[in-house]
Amino acid sequence: KLPPGWEKRMSRSSGRVYYFNHITNASQWERPSGNSSSG
């Protein structure tokens, strides 16, 4: 399961899957890690 705020999306241009955070408006190709504590 993804960390809070993150969701899986697909890029229309490349067709690749990326991850988008609707809370911080951040996007990245790598899967966000939800196990590590923020610090």
Rank of each mutant, 00 (worst) to 15 (best):
K8Y: 07
S37E: 13
G39V: 10
S36A: 13
S11M: 10
M10Y: 15
Y19G: 00
E30I: 07
G15I: 02
F20P: 01
W29S: 05
A26N: 08
S27W: 15
S14A: 07
K1G: 13
T24F: 05
S27N: 04
G5K: 02
G39Q: 13
G15S: 04
K8V: 14
R9Y: 07
H22N: 11
A26T: 15
I23N: 08
R31I: 10
S38Q: 10
N21P: 00
A26E: 14
F20H: 08
V17I: 13
V17T: 09
P4M: 08
G5P: 07
R16I: 06
W6R: 00
E7C: 08
I23S: 06
S33Y: 10
K1V: 12
S36E: 13
E7F: 04
G39K: 08
R16G: 03
P32V: 01
G34T: 11
Q28E: 03
S11F: 08
P4I: 08
P3D: 04
R9W: 03
E30K: 07
S37C: 10
R16K: 11
S11H: 15
S33W: 09
S36V: 13
L2Y: 03
W6P: 00
H22E: 05
K1S: 12
I23G: 04
S33G: 11
Y18S: 01
K1H: 14
L2N: 01
W29V: 06
N35W: 07
Y18R: 01
G34L: 13
G34A: 11
I23K: 06
T24I: 04
G15L: 05
S37T: 11
G39L: 10
S36G: 11
K8F: 06
T24Y: 04
Q28H: 03
E30T: 09
G5I: 02
N25I: 04
Y18M: 02
G34F: 14
P3R: 02
W29K: 05
R16N: 05
I23M: 08
E7Q: 08
M10N: 09
P32M: 00
F20C: 05
G34V: 12
G15D: 04
H22L: 12
P3C: 05
N25V: 04
N21R: 01
R12G: 13
S14E: 10
E30P: 05
S38L: 10
S27P: 03
S27T: 13
P32T: 01
P32A: 00
K8G: 04
N35Q: 11
S38K: 07
G34N: 12
R12M: 15
S13Q: 11
Y19S: 00
V17D: 04
S11V: 12
R9K: 08
L2H: 02
S38V: 12
A26G: 06
T24S: 06
W29Y: 09
V17K: 03
S13W: 09
G39I: 11
A26P: 00
G15A: 05
M10F: 15
I23D: 07
P32H: 01
W29N: 05
S36W: 08
P3K: 02
R12A: 15
W6Y: 01
S11K: 06
N21W: 00
I23A: 08
S33T: 14
F20D: 00
Y19P: 01
Q28F: 03
P4D: 09
E7M: 05
